[in-house]
C-alpha cells in the first residue's frame, strides 16, 4: 500500500523525473493559486487560474489519470475560464475593487486568520493517517486496459445512476441560466426596477420605498 501513513521516504528514494515533474507542477499550482487570490485585476486572476488548472492536469497525468487531465484542460481551461473571461469582458468589471467602502472593517484580518487556521489544521492532519484503507467497488485504475476504458466501465456501470442524475443537473443549470440571463421584457413588472436602479443610492434593498412595492407585487 503506497503511503497510507506518511512514511519517512527521503528524496533519494524517488525517481528524479517524477520528483522534478512533481516539484515543478506543485510550484506552478501554488504560485498561480496565490496569484489568483492577490491579483487586483480579475483578468489576471482568470489567467492565473488557467495556470493552476494546467498544473493540476500535470499532476493528474503523473498519477495515471490521463483522461481526467484532458478533461480538466478541455472543460476547465477551455470552457469555464473562457466563461469567466467572457463575463469579465462583457460586464467591464476588469478594474480593481474599491476597498475604501468596506462595510465590515474587521472582516479581512479575521478572514485571513481563519483561512490560515484552516490551512494549519489540514496540515496538522497530515501527521496522522490519511485514509482507512477501505476499498470501493469500482476496481483498480491500473491493469491491462487503458485508463479511459477503466474509467468508462466504472462510470457506466457502478456509477450509472449518479451519471444520469448529473445530466438532469446540467439541464436544470441551463434552464436556470437562461431564465436568469434573459433580459426583462418591457411588460414585466420588474422592468421599472431596472430603469430606476442606477439613479438610486448604493443599497437598493435598504430603501423601503423600493422594496415594498416588489413584495406587494410578488404576493
Amino acid at each position: 500500500m503506497i503511503g497510507l501513513a506518511p512514511s519517512p521516504i527521503g528524496l533519494l528514494a524517488v525517481a528524479i523525473p517524477d520528483l522534478a515533474t512533481f516539484v515543478v507542477a506543485a510550484a506552478v499550482v501554488l504560485a498561480s493559486a496565490i496569484g489568483v487570490v492577490i491579483s487586483r485585476n480579475p483578468v489576471h486572476s482568470a489567467l492565473f487560474l488557467v495556470a493552476t488548472l494546467f498544473g493540476v492536469a500535470v499532476l493528474f497525468v503523473e498519477q495515471q489519470a490521463e483522461f481526467l487531465a484532458a478533461v480538466q484542460i478541455i472543460v476547465y481551461a477551455g470552457a469555464i475560464v473562457v466563461l469567466f473571461l467572457f463575463v469579465i469582458m462583457l460586464l467591464g468589471v476588469d478594474r480593481p475593487e474599491k476597498i475604501s467602502k468596506d462595510p465590515l472593517p474587521a472582516q479581512r484580518p479575521l478572514a485571513a486568520f481563519l483561512g490560515l487556521a484552516v490551512v494549519a489544521e489540514v496540515l496538522a492532519l497530515a501527521n496522522t493517517h490519511w485514509s482507512t484503507g477501505a476499498k470501493g467497488t469500482a476496481g483498480p485504475p491500473g491493469g491491462p486496459a487503458s485508463n479511459v476504458s477503466d474509467l468508462a466501465r466504472a462510470t457506466f456501470t457502478t456509477y450509472l445512476l449518479p451519471f444520469e442524475i448529473t445530466s438532469a443537473l446540467l439541464v436544470i443549470a441551463v434552464i436556470g441560466a437562461v431564465v436568469l440571463a434573459r433580459p426583462p421584457r418591457p411588460g414585466e413588472h420588474h422592468a421599472e426596477d431596472d430603469e430606476q436602479a442606477p439613479t438610486e443610492g448604493r443599497s437598493l434593498g435598504e430603501q423601503p420605498g423600493v422594496v415594498e412595492p416588489r413584495q406587494e407585487a410578488s404576493r
Binding site: M1, I2, A65, P141, R153, A154
Partner: peptide, 8 residues
C-alpha cells in the same frame, strides 16, 4: 484513486 487502487 492511486493510493487505494480504486478507479472510483
Amino acid at each position: 484513486a492511486r493510493m487505494l487502487h480504486d478507479v472510483g
